[in-house]
């Protein structure tokens, strides 16, 4: 949980890990619903509350199938609105 605040790479990977963790928490809430409801709900939550840069960083870090991510959050990736106009 603690960063080495002077190492930019460590900070960056900690921030991406945090986004993955946040998405995982959201997925953990919606997992009680059937998958066909949960997946759009997870994406909608992220679209509603995350800034465009957060979404962009998140998609870039996890889209390629890389990184450890909650399966439902991964299923929601396709529905997350990419940053508009970028």
């Amino acid at each position: 949980m603690s960063h080495d605040y002077h190492d930019p790479e460590a900070v960056k990977s900690a921030n991406l890990a945090r986004l993955g963790h946040m998405a995982g928490q959201i997925a953990d809430y919606f997992k009680s619903y059937p998958e066909e409801q949960a997946v759009p709900a997870i994406a909608a939550h992220i679209n509603e509350f995350w800034s465009r840069r957060m979404r962009q960083d998140f998609l870039a870090a996890f889209d390629a199938g890389s990184g450890e991510l909650h399966p439902l959050a991964r299923a929601a990736l396709a529905r997350i609105r990419p940053a508009a106009g970028q």
């Binding site: 960056k12 921030n15 509603e48 840069r53 940053a83």
Partner: peptide, 19 residues
């Protein structure tokens, strides 16, 4: 802007990240 902005913890994360 039609995009949601940053929440306080997100601001701090991005500040540490340099953006």
């Amino acid at each position: 802007d039609m995009e949601p902005g940053l929440r306080i913890p997100n601001m701090l994360d991005e500040a540490v990240g340099g953006t």
